[in-house]
Design a protein around this nucleic acid. Sequence first.
DNA 1: GACATGGATATTGTATACAAATGCCATCGG
DNA 2: CCGATGGCATTTGTATACAATATCCATGTC
Lengths: 225, 225
Amino acid sequence: MSRASDRAYSAIRNMILSGELPAGAQLGEEALADMCGVSRTPVREALRRLEADMLVGRTDTQRTFVADWSIDDVADAFELRAMLEGRAARRAAERMTETALERIRKANRALGAAIQQPMPDVAGFLEGNREFHAIILEVAGSRRLAALLGTLIEQPVVLRTARQYTREELRRSHAEHEELTAAFARRDGAWAEAIMTSHILRAYHAYADAHRARLASGITQEAAE
Amino acid sequence: MSRASDRAYSAIRNMILSGELPAGAQLGEEALADMCGVSRTPVREALRRLEADMLVGRTDTQRTFVADWSIDDVADAFELRAMLEGRAARRAAERMTETALERIRKANRALGAAIQQPMPDVAGFLEGNREFHAIILEVAGSRRLAALLGTLIEQPVVLRTARQYTREELRRSHAEHEELTAAFARRDGAWAEAIMTSHILRAYHAYADAHRARLASGITQEAAE
DNA sequence: GACATGGATATTGTATACAAATGCCATCGG
DNA sequence: CCGATGGCATTTGTATACAATATCCATGTC
């Protein structure tokens, strides 16, 4: 992380995820270099990585821009993630050890505690959630699965909507984690896969609903102006 | 393709796929630059891309080397590919058009003709096969699925073993393509997915058998020396 | 007024020089 | 003989200069 190219990668990535760089914005290498305090060389490396993550796109003439995520792109990403995480859960269940199971239970307890505060601790929830999924991926023991999911998991859309979860949604998410843990405890791969797939697809539909609501309110607002 | 970084990418990739650069070989940037007739800058870009393809690895101190594909890695890659291509086939069946169906039939006829020569035309078979899978991926209409499969499809292992297919294996492959076409004609996603998954896993086991045979003959040879 | 053309301007691609780090090997001490 | 240590050689990381290419705008022509 101390390398200039890593700093550039994180910096640009954060600017995209936070919305500071809006979808469709042109990304001049020189400008980014100035922003990050490094030269163009590491910026170029960072842009290649972001391109692989599909966070930035490229015109036919090599101009880079912040990728524009249509609702179809989001659906595509979630569908893929549901399939891949489902597979990871299946493999994890088949390979589960007592130690890993205990770590999963611990992450889940932390997650449960975070949402039962008077004011839900969303950051704590996200961290517990991340840890939970990370352990599953580790136990699944597939380098490729881990690599592919790594780029799919932290997407602009997911991060921006997680903070809008209602307490009920957080509780439901926690309950699904408990059920997954039960499937792991029984080494039931098919069960684990089914719960996980459903878990991700539910998250997708929560997003899609919120998106539709935003659109509707946007239209209302426009009409009011 | 005219850019130096693209030339470097292709050149290094070919050297890896052909075995000219054996698994585990250290890849000095300077040496590669000389081989490709370009400077280190485009070579570095090429190495990053190859790293994303998992064709090259990296030590903890940033030394790059040709990735070593253990039999477990191969199994991992095939398992993933079976799942992803299965999903692509399902989506393609659900979205199939008459025009695309005709293109698929055409690719399949070419493939069939190639294997019925007195001396099977393996290059023709591979080309027809590639075209067949490419059309399916196109009809599936998922950018991410296409991107992920792109890196999984042309693997060292696959290319090196395809040429060893027996006529019987080629014929079987062709028959499976015909069956897939039937599933597409009926827009039966579940059927298409099942055939495709089985198609890929059969190819995996053909490889695994050949691998075991190689190992066995290798041991015999060693014993004879 | 619309559109093509040309050149100025801006942006990306490549090479190279230098800085930082890593690895290797010889030497030294136990 | 084994292991630690220091310095030299090699390799990677970054900055910068220059080349190639694309964009943009003004000008001129129909």
